[in-house]
Amino acid sequence: MSIQHFRVALIPFFAAFCLPVFAHPETLVKVKDAEDQLGARVGYIELDLNSGKILESFRPEERFPMMSTFKVLLCGAVLSRVDAGQEQLGRRIHYSQNDLVEYSPVTEKHLTDGMTVRELCSAAITMSDNTAANLLLTTIGGPKELTAFLHNMGDHVTRLDRWEPELNEAIPNDERDTTMPAAMATTLRKLLTGELLTLASRQQLIDWMEADKVAGPLLRSALPAGWFIADKSGAGERGSRGIIAALGPDGKPSRIVVIYTTGSQATMDERNRQIAEIGASLIKHW
């Protein structure tokens, strides 16, 4: 067993022997301040990774656009098919120029040779490549099948209805392509620590998230040296922004954090800054 596999296998073990965790309302004060600064709703939840206990939450059962955070769930569904012998990570998928959609920095470079399922998941999570996500959605049967996968996990809230990039439209009061912070946090925890996926697939999923290259201005910008984070960000229309993450000190994750916002007129930089400040408060009061 590799060191990384050992780390993920012992996530519940280490967490069980940690000192009790206590909620700190100071972080919620910052979440509410972010709402004021952005002029928009902000949803927040913080779960203990081992027990699933909610440590703090704000608007945990209000719907927010998922945006690209759905790509972690998508690759979880792909990995479940791999575990069941219905898919192979090494299978190569070929596609054409007509398949390319807006923001496809990886797939646009491989029109000639195609990409493997493993490479597509890596591109979808680490670079948020939209064509990679659409190609992977095709392998599982489309958005409705991802929703069905989530329902089978016990998540009857999260739903995907459309493809990239239309799913980022974020129309107010439109339930399409949305989740709730509580539902997303619980589902992410199941994917990373539950028995739904094999140990190898859980490790692969967290490795992809740990290698995320496009979430630097968010929670990662607030992390002290030595902290662990595996995350996936999302951005959408109407001032929408979000991030889902597993993080913790001492090089291992111990909490799940989900943050979503929508309806702001603020710039992307300002949305990023507010999420980073929430992260800084979380870490300060850990």
Rank of each mutant, 00 (worst) to 15 (best):
M1H: 01
S2M: 12
S2C: 10
S2W: 09
Q4R: 10
H5T: 12
F6N: 09
V8D: 09
V8Y: 15
A9M: 14
A9L: 09
A9K: 12
L10E: 04
I11M: 11
I11F: 12
I11D: 02
P12Q: 10
P12W: 12
F13R: 02
F13G: 07
F14T: 10
A15S: 15
A16E: 05
A16R: 04
F17Y: 11
C18V: 07
L19E: 07
V21C: 15
F22A: 10
A23V: 04
A23R: 04
P25W: 10
P25V: 12
P25R: 08
P25N: 09
E26K: 13
T27N: 05
L28G: 08
V29D: 13
V29P: 04
K30G: 05
K30R: 12
K30C: 15
V31C: 14
K32P: 01
K32Y: 10
D33R: 15
D33A: 15
D33E: 13
A34S: 14
E35G: 05
Q37P: 04
Q37G: 11
L38V: 07
L38M: 11
G39N: 13
A40V: 06
A40P: 02
R41I: 09
R41M: 11
R41S: 09
R41E: 07
G43N: 00
Y44Q: 01
Y44I: 08
Y44K: 00
I45P: 00
I45M: 12
E46C: 07
E46H: 08
L47K: 04
D48N: 08
D48C: 07
D48M: 06
S51T: 15
I54G: 04
L55E: 08
S57W: 11
S57K: 12
F58K: 07
F58I: 08
F58W: 14
P60T: 12
E61S: 12
E61I: 09
E62N: 07
F64W: 03
F64K: 01
P65T: 03
M66N: 02
M66D: 00
M67C: 13
M67Q: 08
M67I: 07
S68C: 01
S68M: 00
S68P: 00
T69A: 03
F70V: 12
K71R: 01
V72K: 00
V72N: 01
L73S: 08
L74E: 04
G76S: 12
G76T: 07
G76R: 00
A77R: 09
A77Q: 14
V78G: 01
V78I: 10
L79R: 01
L79G: 02
L79H: 01
L79E: 02
S80L: 11
R81T: 07
D83Q: 09
G85I: 04
Q86E: 12
Q86K: 13
E87P: 02
Q88S: 13
L89G: 06
G90H: 12
R92S: 10
R92F: 10
I93S: 03
I93F: 06
I93L: 12
H94P: 09
Y95L: 07
Y95G: 03
S96K: 10
S96R: 12
Q97D: 13
N98G: 10
V101S: 10
Y103E: 03
S104C: 07
S104Y: 03
S104H: 06
V106C: 09
T107F: 02
E108L: 09
E108N: 10
K109E: 14
H110S: 08
D113Y: 12
D113F: 07
D113E: 14
T116V: 06
T116W: 02
V117C: 04
V117K: 01
R118G: 15
R118P: 04
E119H: 09
L120G: 02
L120T: 04
L120R: 00
C121M: 08
S122Q: 15
S122L: 15
S122K: 13
S122D: 15
S122E: 15
A124C: 08
A124G: 07
I125V: 11
I125A: 04
I125G: 01
S128W: 00
S128V: 00
D129V: 00
T131M: 05
T131I: 01
A132M: 00
N134C: 04
L135S: 04
L136I: 09
L136G: 02
L137F: 09
L137H: 03
L137K: 01
T139H: 10
T139R: 11
T139I: 14
I140K: 03
I140Q: 06
I140A: 07
I140V: 09
G141A: 06
P143M: 04
K144T: 14
K144I: 13
K144M: 12
E145M: 12
L146P: 00
T147S: 10
T147W: 04
A148R: 14
A148N: 14
A148P: 07
F149Q: 07
F149V: 09
N152D: 15
N152C: 11
N152P: 04
N152I: 10
M153E: 08
G154N: 07
G154Y: 05
G154D: 09
G154R: 07
H156Y: 15
H156V: 10
H156T: 13
H156S: 11
V157D: 15
T158A: 05
L160K: 02
L160Q: 07
D161M: 05
R162H: 10
R162V: 02
E164D: 01
P165T: 11
P165G: 06
P165Q: 06
P165D: 06
E166I: 13
L167K: 02
L167C: 12
L167D: 03
N168E: 04
N168Q: 07
N168R: 03
E169A: 13
A170F: 11
A170L: 08
I171D: 13
I171T: 14
P172T: 12
N173H: 12
N173W: 15
D174W: 02
E175I: 14
E175S: 12
R176S: 09
R176Q: 14
T178V: 05
T178D: 02
T178I: 04
T179F: 00
M180F: 11
P181M: 02
A182R: 14
A182G: 13
A183R: 09
A185L: 02
A185S: 08
T186V: 14
T186I: 15
T187G: 08
L188H: 04
L188S: 06
L188M: 11
R189G: 12
K190T: 14
L191A: 06
T193V: 15
G194F: 09
E195V: 07
L196D: 11
L197D: 03
L197S: 05
T198H: 08
T198D: 10
T198P: 07
L199R: 10
L199V: 15
L199E: 15
A200E: 14
S201A: 10
R202H: 08
Q203W: 07
Q203C: 02
Q204W: 06
L205G: 00
I206D: 04
M209G: 03
M209A: 04
E210M: 10
E210C: 12
A211I: 07
D212F: 02
D212V: 04
K213T: 08
V214W: 05
A215Y: 04
A215W: 02
G216L: 08
G216I: 07
G216S: 09
P217G: 09
L218E: 02
L218Q: 03
L219A: 03
R220H: 04
R220D: 03
R220A: 04
R220C: 03
R220W: 02
R220Y: 02
A222M: 12
P224L: 04
A225Y: 12
G226W: 06
G226C: 09
G226Q: 09
W227N: 01
F228H: 06
D231L: 04
K232R: 06
G234I: 00
A235G: 11
A235F: 02
G236S: 07
E237F: 09
R238A: 09
G239V: 01
G239A: 04
S240G: 12
R241L: 03
G242E: 01
G242I: 00
G242H: 02
I243M: 06
I244P: 00
A245D: 00
G248S: 03
P249R: 09
D250G: 13
G251D: 11
G251I: 07
G251Q: 13
K252C: 12
P253N: 09
P253C: 11
P253V: 09
S254R: 12
R255G: 02
R255F: 02
I256Y: 03
V257T: 06
I259D: 00
I259F: 07
Y260H: 01
T262E: 09
G263Q: 06
G263R: 07
S264I: 04
S264M: 05
Q265D: 12
Q265I: 12
A266I: 06
M268Q: 08
M268N: 07
M268K: 06
D269E: 15
D269Y: 12
D269G: 13
D269A: 14
D269Q: 12
E270D: 14
R271L: 12
N272F: 02
Q274W: 15
Q274P: 05
I275S: 01
I275T: 03
A276H: 14
E277T: 13
I278S: 00
A280C: 12
L282V: 12
L282P: 00
I283Q: 06
H285K: 09
W286L: 04
W286E: 02
W286S: 01
W286T: 01
